[in-house]
């Protein structure tokens, strides 16, 4: 879809009261998810995971093993979905693509001088173009937080818009790195900016900065998606990344998406978890729910 917006069409973002957000979030955390809804929810979570490795020490071996796991989460338990995608550096996209083949698992690549984004625009464009050429289905770009905090919003806007053009058919996820934006007001403003500049998804974090995907931050971003949808009828995806390492937290995120956006968003087309260790905890919970026995991590593979 061609982006029709320009920087001048960006609306004034509403203010966000942090204490109010915390209260609201605590209500999601109090939802009690039991029996069927728990099993369905856990499977949904698995299917929404972007299984991720983003390290300097990533090697073909590591990526190969992770890709295998992405498709074979726990083969001894039939009926499990695959994860949604694997998420790697541009240099690993070609390899990952050859591993996931036609499994349905997508390959997402970070780009734009991930994680800091401190590079000139032409470098970012080259970075992104390379990943797309290598076959990336999805691009996870970072915004220029320094420019954002310096008030150069138009710069940030234009950068996203240009990367979007380079993406072609690949879907663009825009990482706000909310841990560096400091306030929920900034998170909201950056969300609106990214959405209007052409993001298909907005994503909380690189995973390199704490705090990452807190529910408060995800809530704030979801409300930006909600308002955009109400305004335009266009759905935007959401990806909390970093810090969601257990099933309970993941389920609470689903509750939040369901109540704020609706069931339409509860597929991996519109909602993802960026995580590396979440999958095994979800698997253990699924087995626990199925067998009634608490599980040991020794029985779940680490790749």
């Amino acid at each position: 879809m061609k982006n029709q917006n320009n920087f001048n069409s960006l609306p004034l973002s509403p203010s966000v009261d942090k204490v109010g957000v915390e209260e609201r979030v605590s209500r999601f955390q109090k939802r009690s998810i039991k029996t069927n809804s728990k099993m369905d929810g856990l499977k949904m979570v698995l299917n929404m995971i972007d299984l991720t490795t983003l390290e300097g020490k990533d090697t073909p071996g590591k990526v190969r093993q992770m890709c295998y796991k992405a498709i074979h989460l726990h083969d001894s338990f039939p009926g499990l979905p695959t994860v949604a995608a694997v998420c790697v550096y541009p240099s690993m996209v070609g390899l990952a693509k050859s591993m996931v083949k036609d499994s349905g698992v997508k390959v997402a690549s970070v780009s734009t001088a991930f994680p800091s984004g401190q590079a000139p625009l032409d470098v970012k464009i080259t970075d992104t173009k390379y990943a797309v050429d290598q076959g990336a289905d999805e691009i996870d770009m970072v915004i220029s937080r320094g420019k954002f905090l310096a008030g150069e919003y138009a710069f940030v806007f234009d950068e996203i818009a240009q990367i979007k053009e380079v993406c072609g058919q690949a879907r663009l996820k825009v990482i706000l790195e909310t841990g560096e934006l400091a306030t929920l007001d900034n998170v909201r403003k950056a969300s609106d900016l990214a959405i209007y500049a052409g993001a298909d998804f907005i994503k909380t974090s690189t995973g390199k900065i704490q705090p990452a995907a807190t529910m408060q931050v995800t809530y704030t971003m979801l409300m930006a998606i909600r308002d955009y949808y109400d305004e335009t009828g266009i759905m935007i995806g959401m990806k909390p990344a970093g810090g969601i390492s257990n099933s309970k937290l993941a389920l609470h995120n689903l509750v939040m998406v369901k109540e704020l956006l609706g069931d339409e968003w509860l597929t991996n087309e519109w909602f993802r978890f960026g995580a590396s260790s979440l999958a095994n905890d979800v698997l253990m919970q699924i087995l626990k729910t199925d067998t009634g026995k608490y599980q040991s991590s020794d029985y779940f593979t680490i790749d």
Binding site: D17, K18, V19, G20, E22, E23, S26
Partner: peptide, 10 residues
């Protein structure tokens, strides 16, 4: 009136 950052809201 709410105050930010003095412990949890709950």
């Amino acid at each position: 009136h709410p105050i930010e950052n003095i412990g949890g809201a709950t």
